[in-house]
Nucleic acid binder design. Structure first.
Lengths: 214, 214, 214, 214
DNA sequence: GATGAATGAGATTTCATTCAT
DNA sequence: AATGAATGAAATCTCATTCAT
């Protein structure tokens, strides 16, 4: 929606609007199909059928099956990055920012599990989606900067490698999402809340019981 | 190698030995090819060529391309689990055990990057490898038990969810391996050593600087 | 031809008509190829080439090579059964009906030897064409009912097993068709006419010279 | 057995006897497998497995899968022709000879249904078994000569085409065998007896009730 | 925009046959 | 004689993509 305002609209008539709707229809269908069957085993015909259009139409909006996946990733990851940026720019202390980032990712699961499934399973580790490399990196960088900020503020330990730490945080998130995606980890509302707490708790406070805390 | 002594040898002749060698040849070739091109884009012919055998022979030893991947996973993961078990059964305190587990996984990267590439990219998140589900879970369980042991010994904080914590630890490991696999994270000897330290450091000590430590 | 008027036409445009034409093109090509090389030794590519289309198109209309054969059988056998029914329902005496049925089968050879070749060689005795079983049986039943009618009318001997007799009649026909198909029996116009006569003559009158006839 | 005496026996030792046994073992297994799955869908490995030998051994005794089928046909058809010849040379009248021939073929079904299945389904109509052509023809010729003898003796009607008539007789037999093979016709002892009677009855006496007979 | 017929490269898998042991 | 590992031609079928309508 907000997105739409950016896109070139040839005419404010129904034609263009209808066309854009179809495009979104196809993208949404693709997410469902990719989530269900995986990218490689999904057929272009499956996506078209799920969207209720002829499969030829898909090539009106996208140049290939790969581009559909890339678009799914790009358009959604951009939204995520925007929300990341909002957290980063907030006035919170570093640890609360970290919690904010964690919440953004984990709650996306509740909102759109299919989308997360696709992101986690298909995009994260496939080497052939060119665009994704930089964009994903940008997510890590936000986490890294928040950690560095915490170190600069004296809240986080300065001796830790902030870059590696950002990978640890992100890895924790992605693994738990994967657990939910694969159905190997319960994912009710309560569990999501607990996961948020536990990740921040472990990553910030560590597993070890400090003498004072005891 | 160690395997060989365990394996049933149908006949003490060279035939069986030769056959087993070929099987291993194919499996090793498959790992290289899957690492290079990904499972779905690898052709059976590529594997055969890499192994220096006719592609038909592959079907003498395996019933399908899928079974090759499954076998790669199963046979190697089993080895990993055995080494995990050794660490778990050692007399070390919980945090050192955790370090031991971390080392096992991260150093495998140095020993056999292709294998890790395949495990991380193809197996970890593909829902269609039946056997894998249980076996992977068994890895998590070891980590979880080590954490629970730490909690029981009073070293680790008891209020943390040990199961989620094990996913966090494993996710950290896998993400950094992924970083190496994708070439997005430097992976020299020094970096591997630092990653080991950082993971244990973060997970055990947390990011936050405790008042006393300061 | 007659068929066309019955078939459901999805749209009154040329598209559907063109598609149906292609389908028939493929079926006709398949008959020629199967007749020439036999079903098992015919390649899907041969059929496509004979039809002048890409082999992929065959799978647009049929789900497998087997289904092509099944369709050839089903659609043609149905026509035959309709002509059988017409004879059965006519007002002729039983022996003339029998002659009618014989003529239908034997003259098909002259009209479409390839089709008969396929029917005789590939369909009649292959156990894996599911649909065929019932339909073939229906052909026998017509013959049997005509014989039973003849018995009821007192023209045919009542003590004969009508079912077995129908198999005898049909076997006579099929064997002579086979002889033509295999080139072991001459098949000119005259021979076909003589075969018609001889079959009816033998089956109705018997080989034995009756005293009176002598 | 009787056969064996004709074959060249390299030495009267066990080696040769054992070898010949294996050959027969393979042939018998082939008949069972061909009957069960059809020639084209039977694998050489199936035959070997059924025979309990390695599939390589098959090529010790036969040059190809085709040759196995050809051998099955040749060796068994020869036996049949010998029995046909015995009937032909007997002193019986033509109609009884005809009955004799019918009995030979139909009773083989009871003795060895698998063999008949293979003969009927695979050999009779496949154009690629070279040798068979002449041999099968020889069967027809016996029938034809018996009919001609009947005509010469004045028992059978002279105006009938003896050659076509022989095809009719043979077709009747084969069709009923096919009915048994395909399970579309009951095949108990009684049914076999009735089939014998009916075939001779129809073919000799005809379906039509003669005035006197009535 | 929309359809779906048509294409054809390409992938997996099968299996008869060979041959070293 | 006997085995079964090894070969590789060949076949079916899939499916992304194009394009005429």
């Amino acid at each position: 929606m907000t997105d739409r305002s950016i896109v070139h609209e040839p005419a404010p008539g129904e034609r263009a609007a209808g066309a854009e709707e179809k495009r979104q229809l196809i993208l949404a269908a693709a997410v469902r199909v990719f989530a269900r069957r995986g990218f490689h085993t999904s057929r272009v015909g499956d996506i078209a059928e799920e969207a209720g259009v002829a499969h030829g139409l898909l090539y009106h909006y996208f140049s290939s099956k790969d581009e559909v996946l890339e678009t799914v990733f790009r358009e959604n990851w951009r939204q995520l990055l925007e929300r990341f940026a909002a957290v980063e720019e907030s006035a919170e202390p570093a640890d609360l920012k970290l919690l904010g980032l964690v919440k953004i990712l984990l709650r996306t699961w509740r909102n759109d599990p299919d989308l997360v499934t696709v992101m986690v399973r298909e995009v994260g580790r496939s080497p052939h989606l060119a665009s994704q490399v930089d964009d994903i990196g940008r997510g890590f960088e936000v986490i890294q900067r928040v950690i560095e900020q915490g170190q600069a503020e004296g809240v986080f330990r300065a001796e830790l490698d902030a870059r590696l730490a950002s990978w640890i945080v992100y890895g924790s998130l992605e693994e738990i999402l994967t657990g939910w995606v694969m159905g190997r980890l319960p994912d009710g509302d309560e569990e999501v809340a607990r996961a948020e707490r536990t990740i921040v708790d472990v990553v910030c406070g560590g597993l070890v019981r400090t003498t004072l805390a005891a």
